[in-house]
Nucleic acid binder design. Structure first.
Lengths: 247, 247
DNA sequence: AAGTGGTCTAGACCACATG
DNA sequence: ATGTGGTCTAGACCACTTG
């Protein structure tokens, strides 16, 4: 109870309270599964308004440390491996600095849709599509392979951005100014085939991630799909959960 | 401007406003990258308090649809594949119903730590550890393989839960009542080796996920590590981003 | 019935970005 | 200087859970 919120400080009150609660959880004062003091109790104890207390709890909820149960209380959440979340941070680095990243276009064609592409893009068989295959290099070393299929739509100005030699930033850092409304992604384990392995300069049959995507425009029409192939060193799916130092 | 918040309704005002904004984004009224009306403007327009408007925006921010930039405005966020997040929902199903899930213990030993285990668990070479190897079955079909190494600590009552035949729920649905403070996980692509393949009843060399974990107790001492091997059908890493119907 | 979280208001002042 | 989001208050009433 000796913890206080200092008013005259750069750190907002809700953040201070969140830090206090976080520390108490780490010290075992509030063990996993247990209830923490009620919002009104903390409001009085620290001289904060209810909304501020709630904001502090909100912070720790986003971090997966607390759980609110209406009418019953706020509880310390035990670790659940099934609730872990992975993101593609490791790829962000790559696409965010054009200094070290180069793109080598292997192939770019106006061609006819194969059956799978026709199905995914909801096109008649043999409709026209654009096929792109490219290699992503990092400091000159090949790190990722990409194959993409784009609907060939007269209404859309065949998005130069998507064909550009640029750092793919349009696909990964925001679809141009907004052709895409939604997308679907799936990560799969895969083996490097002969071609992939040669391109990426790795042994045939070594394990890699395959990131498949489909993107839809604002009419909910799928306009592109494809995949990236990346070895695990490049695309790390790593996460922490529970109480690590700073978040 | 014809949208209104109806007061007398089961749906909270902030949710109604969030739905309105969501629809406007979907309709292209607020295109990606553009600024939406200011909080005070919406506060006046809909007759809501500022806090309520902020809550609505907060909802859409969590969904990755909006981005607040202090002093500048709130913007519609373009799709960024690198910001997609994957979770282990597919595993949650498995561990949550003991009806269909069985665990078959293949091996359970008090043994000596191998070098890797000693390093990870911060133990002297050849220290005592518990080794568990088990097979997870779903409707009688093998779906997942687990190998775990647990620190053999006299202070801790060798957590029966962890050794139990139970549905592993302690590992995946909350570490008992709270032996674990934090954990680290990494997903890797892998090939099924001879043993794994035989156990899981799959072809040798087929691709699979390997989920490696380490868990720490409240003294920050690592007390267990191990991995799960699962074919992609079992452990789906799939996600959507952008504007799908209901979230 | 009492306690808890969930929603909401009508103000206030501050920090930051932009012109 | 103006407008934006960021924080905060001191109340209020409602919905839910529990004894």
């Amino acid at each position: 109870m000796r913890d206080r919120i200092s008013k005259d400080r750069y750190e907002p009150a809700y953040a201070q309270l969140a830090a206090i609660l976080r520390r108490r959880i780490a010290e075992g004062v509030y063990p996993p599964g247990e209830k923490i003091p009620s919002e009104s109790a903390m409001s009085k104890e620290y001289g904060l308004s209810l909304m501020t207390v709630r904001q502090a709890i909100g912070v720790l909820m986003e971090q997966g440390l607390l759980e609110r149960i209406q009418g019953s209380g706020t509880f310390v959440k035990p670790l659940k491996l099934t609730e872990s979340r992975f993101d593609l941070d490791s790829l962000r680095e790559i696409f965010h600095d054009p200094e070290r990243t180069q793109v080598k276009v292997l192939q770019i064609n106006l061609t006819r849709a194969d059956p799978k592409t026709a199905e995914i893009l909801q096109l008649p068989p043999h409709a026209r599509v654009i096929l792109i295959r490219r290699l992503l290099l990092r400091d000159g070393q090949p790190v990722m392979f990409h194959e993409g299929h784009i609907r060939c739509d007269p209404r859309r100005p065949v998005v130069e951005a998507e064909l550009s030699l640029g750092p793919l930033s349009d696909l990964f850092n925001g679809q141009g100014t907004g052709t895409a409304k939604k997308g679907e992604l799936i990560v799969l384990p895969a083996l490097l085939g002969e071609e992939d392995a040669a391109l990426l300069n790795r042994p045939v049959g070594s394990p890699a991630f395959r990131l498949e995507y489909t993107v839809y425009d604002f009419d909910d029409v799928p306009f592109g799909w494809g995949w990236f192939t990346a070895p695990p060193e490049v695309m790390r799916l790593k996460t922490k959960l529970g109480l690590w130092e700073e978040r």
